[in-house]
Amino acid sequence: MDALSPMASPDPAALRLSGALPEWNPEADDALIVREIRDETADVKTFVLAPKQPCVFRYQPGQFLTLDLDIGGESINRCYTIASTPARPHTLSITVKRVPGGPVSNFLHDQVKVGSVLHAIGPMGDFSCFMQGAPSPNPASAPKYLFLSGGSGITPLMSMARTFHDLGEPRDIVFVHAARSPADIIFRGELELMARNQPASFRFAPVCEADSPREPWHGLRGRLNLGVLNHIAPDFKQREVFVCGPAPFMAAVREMLKGAGFDMSRHHEESFDFAELARAEPEVAAEVELAEGVQAVQEAVAAPEVATYTIEFAKQKRTIECRSDTFVLDAARRAGVRLPSSCSKGLCGTCKSKLIEGTVDMKHGGGIRQREIDAGMALLCCSKPTSNLVVDR
Rank of each mutant, 00 (worst) to 15 (best):
R333E: 13
G133N: 04
P12D: 03
I186W: 08
G367A: 02
R196D: 08
I186N: 08
P22T: 07
F57T: 02
V44W: 06
T95E: 01
D39R: 05
L329P: 09
P246K: 07
E255T: 07
A87L: 08
G122E: 08
F57V: 01
I94M: 06
I121G: 01
R203L: 11
T155R: 12
P135F: 12
R58M: 11
A302V: 13
Q298R: 14
E287P: 00
A28W: 05
R58F: 09
C208Q: 08
C208G: 10
A302W: 07
K144W: 12
L148K: 03
K354H: 13
I311C: 12
W217C: 02
A233E: 06
E40D: 10
L92C: 07
S116F: 03
V104G: 03
F313Y: 15
D235A: 10
K237L: 11
W24S: 00
P89D: 02
P139Q: 08
M160H: 06
G245N: 01
D110F: 08
L220P: 01
I368V: 12
S181K: 04
S271Q: 12
E36S: 00
A307T: 11
R323G: 11
K354P: 02
N25M: 00
E321Q: 15
A195S: 15
L108Q: 00
G365N: 11
L389K: 02
I185M: 01
G366L: 07
T91N: 02
S93W: 03
A286N: 11
E74I: 07
A252R: 07
L67N: 02
C351S: 10
K354N: 11
H364K: 00
P234Q: 11
L380Q: 05
G72F: 13
F204S: 10
L191Q: 13
K45E: 01
E240M: 14
K258Q: 13
R58D: 07
G125P: 04
P137Y: 14
A120H: 05
K315E: 13
E269S: 14
S152Y: 04
T66F: 05
A87W: 03
R223E: 04
L193A: 15
V306L: 04
M194Q: 11
A31M: 03
F249I: 03
A314S: 15
R214S: 15
L118T: 02
M250Q: 03
G62C: 09
